[in-house]
């Protein structure tokens, strides 16, 4: 996900201004920033505020409202495990408990070496082949203990 080096003002301004022709450009800007850097750099807050003629507090308000936006980088790999009802009906709770235990992490935590972040997600729309997970950009369905072990091994956990 993260492609650019450390954020600098010029790059940020370019990225922000390339979305200003849109109606309601805020979310597209934030998505573009996160796509480029893996998180929303604090340096961008003031620049977005200026470009959209709103306060920095409002920018912070929007960023902090949405689960997707990060204020600091995640681990190298992000595992999102579905916790919603359909996945629960086929053992997602036990799978989540086992996975967290294996990683020695709680929800939203990143492993000490920075390799893995684990987060809950509420529905990936794979409810008829649950439990479901998203590993970085890859969707996985019918996840059981063995499949999860294989995923963790591939990620070097």
């Amino acid at each position: 996900m993260s492609t650019l080096a450390a954020p600098n003002e010029n790059d940020l301004k370019d990225l922000i201004s390339s979305h200003l022709n849109l109606e309601g450009p805020m979310l597209p800007i934030l998505h573009a920033l996160q796509h480029a850097y893996g998180y929303i750099p604090a340096l961008a807050h003031g620049l977005i505020a200026e470009a959209l003629n709103i306060t920095k507090a409002e920018v912070h308000g929007v960023i902090s409202f949405y689960h997707d936006f990060r204020e600091k980088p995640a681990g190298t790999h992000v595992i999102k495990l579905c916790r919603a009802e359909a996945c629960q009906s086929v053992g997602a709770n036990a799978l989540a408990a086992d996975t967290l235990k294996k990683l020695g992490l709680d929800w939203h935590e990143t492993s000490a070496d920075g390799s893995i972040t684990i987060e809950p997600v509420y529905c990936l729309g794979l409810c008829a082949c649950a439990p479901a997970a998203m590993v970085d950009d890859r969707l996985v369905a019918r996840v059981d203990g063995a499949k999860m072990d294989k995923i963790l091994k591939e990620l070097g956990a």
Binding site: G24, L27, P28, H31, V62, V121, Y122
Partner: peptide
């Protein structure tokens, strides 16, 4: 145009969705 949400369930409620689409908190 296709616009992408940001992981907030409540934005499925139509007025929260409109706020979000406008770039506000949902």
């Amino acid at each position: 145009e296709i616009r992408v949400g940001a992981g907030a369930y409540v934005c499925g409620e139509e007025t929260a969705l409109l706020n979000s689409l406008e770039g506000k908190r949902g």
